[in-house]
């Protein structure tokens, strides 16, 4: 997976759960719908954000591997 894709997915999942919470507080969607959306989005948020920052960007130094 590309670094960019992981970032977009992670941020989208985070955005969905924040939006669901905002909509539920505003009374636009019922609370259980927001909870359900968050349950689905939260794992995706955690994993994809971690995948994004652990992914190589392609221009690292070659690590020092000893003499």
């Amino acid at each position: 997976m590309k670094k960019q894709t992981a970032l977009i997915t992670g941020v989208a999942a985070g955005g969905i759960s924040v939006a669901a919470w905002a909509l539920a507080t505003g009374g636009y969607i019922p609370h259980w719908t927001a909870e359900l959306l968050t349950i689905v989005a939260f794992p995706a948020f955690v994993i994809f954000v971690a995948l994004w920052w652990s992914a190589k960007s392609g221009d690292e130094d070659i690590p020092f591997i000893g003499y």
Partner: peptide
């Protein structure tokens, strides 16, 4: 994913 999902559900 399931591990995180089920315990988020349990919290709710």
């Amino acid at each position: 994913f399931v591990a995180i999902g089920i315990w988020s559900a349990a919290l709710y």
